[in-house]
Amino acid sequence: MHQLIDSLFMKEFSNSILSQRKDSAILKLGDEKIAFTTDTYVVDPIFFPGGDIGSLAVNGTINDISVCGAKPIFISLGLVIEEGLPKAVLDRVIKSVGAASRAAGVKVVTGDTKVVERGSADKIFINTSGIGKVSYENLSVGKIKPGDVVLVSGPIGDHAISVLSVREGIAFRAKVKSDSAPLNGLIFQALKVSKNIAFMRDPTRGGLATTLNEITKLSGFGIALEEKEIPVREGVREACELLGLDPLYLACEGRVVIIVSKNDAAKVLSAVRKSREGRAARIIGTVTKEHKGRVYLNTLAGSSRVLDMLSGEQLPRIC
């Protein structure tokens, strides 16, 4: 996917806004600065413990806007529906979109629906775009400096494992719910207490390891992570051992990585922990001058190794 972005999209659409590679584009319209983003959601199965494709599509877009220091206000809703999808299923998804948008304080203001032939889509695909008002302008990878600390707002991998736990052919019970949640509240609590937050990003596709790699590649500094500090929930851990997955590469849908100056780290950590989504937040590493552009993991065994990025989805394996 990263290769596709570089070789195709960046080349064809090259412009100064796109090349910033932020989670949302930051646009100036008159005196207002707004954040604008879009994302398309495909998930199998569409209902999973702790969420469904509807709430996922709302929360994901809210989070992409929020991590840019903007307050999400309006979203659009585009549906691609496979012919024959039961009305009750559609009702349930749409009700979930409604509930999630109300919970996050955003309005669905425009939309579109297409029905495609059976087999041309898998049940339902959702696209959401969103706009928000930028209220905190200082977030940028350029602000990251050695000595800053890396904070994650909660246990990683819950979303990916909750989805796998109900997938046909793999199913197990793990008492793990998806972490899918709107993070606008949490993020603004954090921004309120510190002016020294350099950057934020939500570790979705490719998980924590991939997101941190994106950050080191953009900032030019390294990151050293402490394996013993990285929160992984019971249930997620066992599922990873069972299926041969690495939690560091599992997608989260309600977590954020915050890079903040060392002095403000404790303040930000306690602000994040005050919100429901951030109760188990942890400081997991530091930005380093060494290892430029790379992420290193200090392992539980006392060694240290490179963490690379992973673009494709991890597959359950038995070997």
Partner: peptide
């Protein structure tokens, strides 16, 4: 590889 045992 995961535990970095070569280094040890």
């Amino acid at each position: 590889a995961r535990w970095g045992l070569r280094q040890i």
